[in-house]
Simulated assay, not measured.
Amino acid sequence: MKSFTYNALPARVIFGSDTLPQIAQEIKNLGCTKALVLTTPQQIPEGELVLKLIGPELGAGIYSEATMHTPTDITEKAVARAQELKADCVISVGGGSTTGLGKAIALRTGLKQIAVPTTYAGSEASATPIIGETSGSVKKTQKTMKVLPNVIVYDVKLSLTLPPRMTLTSGVNAVAHAVEALYSTDSNPIIDGLALQGITAIARALPQIMHSPPDSESLFSARSDALFGAWACGTCLGAVGMSLHHKICHTLGGTFNLPHADTHTVILPHAMAYNAPYAKETMKQIVSALKDAGLAAESAPGAVWDLVKSLDGPMSLRELGMREEDLDKAADIASGNPYPNPAPLERDKLKKLLQDAWNGIRPE
């Protein structure tokens, strides 16, 4: 057993079905009295449901302008709204856009947070002290305990109507956290175990979700597996450092405004292939986890690519709207600042990675 250091994150997690009614008590447990509910414009109904459950005595109102990549101008408007309503906590209902906004508000105000995820992995996984914000065309991330949610409430029922494409891309987004945790410079056996559980749970669940009849018991079971996998993978993201894959995705999202989860889905197998020669043991572990999920897997990068293709997911940066002439700029940014990664960061090789991802070529 190798030596390691592990810092556990002090977050309260509530997982199950029909857990939403517990939020009112969780607000009181935090010593709070007025909660501002955060959503995107598309998820106002879910926010209104939460507001109804906590009642007028605990609900301050809704701010529904959360958006992708957590732009700082949106955050400033949300902070002003929270102060106007005298809110003493926020409830983030949704995916990464909403969770990121809740974290950004907490960073500036110190307000306590309750996160209610409705996807499997957003811009900032709920169970992490990591926040990424975009100002202008630059997205920057930081790690600080100021943004770690105090409570995370997972309710499987909220994920039952998640659209198929978002189901797939947010699930692969979650898998990316686990993959990079396994070859992180500060990896440890506790997080390695969670990472492999998360990969297996999501890889097993995604095909079942796509192929199960609506309202079936098998669909509910698969949704439960996927949501557990999302938590496991998100915990990995918060506990150890990330590498090349996340750097590229933040570059493509912040600078070129590509959709976050879709970008993760396209880039992951290519980033894995780039690192594979320098992370052979990790790739063997991933292959084993994918086989445990019932997938045919010989090469870890190829198996992830095959899974996405078999479920009609996005396969290229080109289809996400990336211009081929911008690949050089993306390679420059991704190689511009050193960061830990198994394989050496070489600008020409990074350009090839991006070119392959733009073309949608299957990695070996």
Score class of each variant (00 low, 15 high):
164 P>S: 09
26 E>T: 07
238 G>A: 09
277 P>W: 13
338 P>I: 05
275 N>V: 12
80 A>K: 09
355 Q>G: 08
120 Y>F: 15
25 Q>H: 11
261 A>L: 02
151 V>P: 04
167 T>R: 07
243 S>F: 03
110 G>V: 00
331 A>G: 05
124 E>P: 00
145 M>T: 13
49 L>I: 10
33 T>L: 05
270 H>K: 12
117 P>Q: 10
186 D>C: 08
100 G>W: 01
71 P>N: 08
120 Y>L: 14
141 T>S: 15
224 S>Q: 13
264 H>M: 04
97 S>M: 01
284 K>M: 11
165 R>W: 00
318 R>K: 15
96 G>P: 06
5 T>V: 13
123 S>T: 14
88 D>R: 03
277 P>T: 09
130 I>L: 14
150 N>Y: 04
311 L>N: 06
301 P>D: 09
346 E>D: 12
189 P>Y: 10
32 C>A: 10
59 G>R: 04
360 G>D: 09
82 A>I: 00
52 K>H: 13
205 A>T: 04
230 A>E: 07
311 L>E: 08
20 L>D: 06
277 P>E: 06
15 F>N: 12
49 L>S: 09
319 E>W: 10
3 S>W: 05
334 A>M: 06
298 E>H: 12
185 T>W: 15
162 L>A: 02
312 D>Q: 15
131 I>S: 01
287 V>Q: 09
336 G>I: 07
171 G>M: 06
7 N>A: 10
334 A>W: 11
148 L>C: 09
34 K>M: 01
128 T>W: 12
87 A>L: 02
131 I>Q: 03
226 A>M: 13
326 D>A: 08
35 A>N: 02
219 L>G: 07
131 I>A: 07
256 F>V: 08
153 V>P: 03
173 N>P: 10
361 I>Q: 14
47 G>H: 05
205 A>Y: 10
142 Q>D: 07
107 L>N: 03
238 G>C: 06
54 I>Y: 06
151 V>N: 05
336 G>R: 12
130 I>Y: 10
161 T>I: 01
50 V>W: 03
343 A>L: 08
263 T>G: 07
27 I>L: 11
149 P>I: 00
52 K>W: 00
125 A>S: 12
193 G>P: 04
152 I>W: 04
93 V>I: 03
146 K>F: 01
211 H>C: 05
5 T>I: 13
29 N>K: 14
292 D>C: 12
221 S>W: 08
354 L>F: 15
74 I>W: 00
196 L>F: 04
